[in-house]
């Protein structure tokens, strides 16, 4: 049985290596992927189409914005599904673990975290807002933001963090993030374009069509950031306590 499991692995390996010798030359600018009209269009025209200097952000939030919307939905689904799986599932009573000691949160740790958390949160906003110009964006900013709450939960305990960010709020914020994203898409549809055609927003905001895309992308990224923040914290809170939401790690 043990040997049997090597067979599919070996078959896949031989297959993949067989194809690897047919790949285009390593790093060549003439490889189909680098030379294709799609890729060239992204590099040459992003500035003209959207005025965003960071092409990755432009492709992510605008050219392939529909993908990214569902990516955000995937994050939201993960949060909801974990909640669904773990809610009311296990023993309500807390079992004391073998190595657990009752102790107050450590003074040094908590005071360091007091100093750190605001910095992390400001940095999260920076990463989110600066995603147009430098690497960054909604997902990265959202994860940082979520991490700041997780840090609070780690250094005090989960209840303290849950007072600041109740679990119902994670669901609401996660939903609002998607609502914001899809809402911007829907609004641009009502204004006469296709779904997610941000340039139509120029009809109601005093900006050019390109800058409308630029600003709508920021709105979309904020939506992504909200969802990711909320769900990251919700995942931590549920997974660290088997869904009981008491005590935590």
């Amino acid at each position: 049985m043990k040997l049997l499991s090597y067979i599919p692995v070996l078959v896949v390996g031989v297959l993949l290596l067989y194809a690897a010798k047919d790949f285009p030359e390593w790093g060549s600018p003439d490889a189909p992927a680098s030379k294709s009209p799609v890729s060239s269009h992204f590099i040459a025209n992003t500035g003209v189409d959207t005025e965003v200097p960071n092409m990755v952000t432009a492709v992510l939030a605008d050219y392939r914005g529909f993908d990214t919307m569902f990516e955000t939905v995937v994050v939201f689904i993960a949060g909801m599904a974990v909640l669904a799986i773990l809610k009311n599932s296990g023993r309500k009573k807390l079992v004391k673990r073998e190595f657990e000691v009752d102790a107050e949160p450590d003074l040094i740790v908590t005071n360091t975290v007091r100093l750190l958390v605001p910095v992390i949160q400001i940095f999260a906003f920076y990463v989110l807002a600066h995603g147009h110009v430098s690497p960054g964006g909604g997902f990265q900013g959202g994860v940082l933001m979520g991490a700041s709450f997780i840090l609070v939960a780690l250094s005090w305990d989960l209840e303290t963090a849950l007072i600041r960010f109740p679990l119902n709020w994670t669901t609401i914020l996660g939903g609002l993030g998607i609502f914001l994203y899809a809402g911007i898409g829907l609004l641009s549809m009502f204004l006469g374009g296709e779904f997610l055609d941000y340039s139509e927003l120029a009809n109601i905001f005093p900006v050019s069509r390109e800058m409308a895309r630029y600003h709508a992308m920021l709105g979309v990224e904020i939506g992504v950031g909200l969802t990711v923040t909320a769900i990251m914290f919700s995942l931590y809170a549920n997974l660290s306590t088997e869904g009981r939401l008491q005590r935590g790690l």
């Binding site: 992927a33 680098s34 799609v38 890729s39 992204f42 590099i43 092409m55 990755v56 432009a58 492709v59 992510l60 392939r64 993908d67 990214t68 990516e71 997902f139």
Partner: peptide, 10 residues
């Protein structure tokens, strides 16, 4: 090429 990076973010 920005496209693979975007795909991998997803």
């Amino acid at each position: 090429n920005p496209l693979p990076h975007v795909l991998m973010l997803t």
